[in-house]
Every structure is written in structure tokens, then in C-alpha cells.
């Protein structure tokens, strides 16, 4: 498995996955989640940012059965098992869309826009899809 090569370097970097796209309409959210799980296997310092339409990814009521797609929302619940616990959701993005924190599928850290900017600035590697 290639995963071992990364661990062998012993380097731990701060990875941020920036999620700004809604789920289901395009594949970006699902395939982003797949990278998140792999990066956790590399023992990196992983954070996820949800802002703009990305906050819709976490809505617990999402149910794509009727459009024939797999519901990947439960995967967000599994992140904790991979020690991925830094999920930052932007307060303004939630408010603009009328989404409350209670509607989200996992516990998150809600941050204001300025603080989200600081989270972004503190990273070594920023991945967006």
C-alpha cells in the first residue's frame, strides 16, 4: 500500500480541506471526503472547512434515495473514528442559507468569517475540489 510511504517520511503537515460546494449536484463533496479519509491514514493534522454551499454537505436530512445516489452523509459520522475532529463551519454561511447548527449531522465548531480566515492562513496544504 502506498500509504506507508508517507508515514515513513515522519512529516506531519497541517492539511485543510475546503468544502464550498453542495453535495449530490456534483461529485466534488463525495470525492473530497474520500481524500480526507486517506489523509487521516497518513497521520496528518487534518482540518475540514465548510463554507458557502459546502455547509449543505452536513445537513442530516439529506436523503438522495429518490435520485438514485448513495447517501454519503453517514461517512461524516465516521470521521471521528479516524481522529478527524476539526470540522469548522462558517456561521455566516449557515445564516445566509437559513441552516441551523442543529440541522447538521455531526458536532462541529462554528466559527465566524474572520476566524475561518485565520484557520485557512494557518495551514501547510490547502486542498479544494
Amino acid at each position: 500500500m502506498s500509504e506507508g510511504d508517507g508515514e515513513a517520511t515522519g512529516l506531519v503537515k497541517k492539511f485543510l480541506f475546503v468544502n464550498r460546494k453542495a453535495p449530490y449536484g456534483t461529485i466534488y463533496a463525495l470525492e473530497a471526503l474520500e481524500v480526507v479519509l486517506i489523509s487521516a491514514a497518513f497521520d496528518q493534522d487534518v482540518s475540514l472547512a465548510f463554507l458557502d454551499d459546502g455547509v449543505y454537505q452536513l445537513v442530516s436530512a439529506n436523503n438522495p434515495a429518490g435520485i438514485g445516489m448513495k447517501n454519503f452523509s453517514p461517512t461524516y459520522r465516521a470521521l471521528e473514528d479516524y481522529d478527524v475532529t476539526k470540522l469548522y463551519v462558517e456561521r455566516e454561511s449557515l445564516a445566509e442559507r437559513g441552516v441551523s447548527e442543529d440541522a447538521l449531522i455531526v458536532p462541529v465548531t462554528v466559527v465566524g468569517r474572520a476566524e475561518m480566515g485565520k484557520v485557512m492562513a494557518a495551514q501547510d496544504v490547502v486542498l479544494s475540489f
Partner: peptide
Amino acid sequence: SGLGQLVESGIQADRLVVFG
């Protein structure tokens, strides 16, 4: 190859630039 190659690139490279 696997997604591990992307994560590894992020670890090993001095900069990772995303185009999408």
C-alpha cells in the same frame, strides 16, 4: 494509483497547487 499519492505529494512537496 491511490489517493495516498495525492496526500503524499502534499506532504513531500514544498507547495501543492490545485487547478479545478
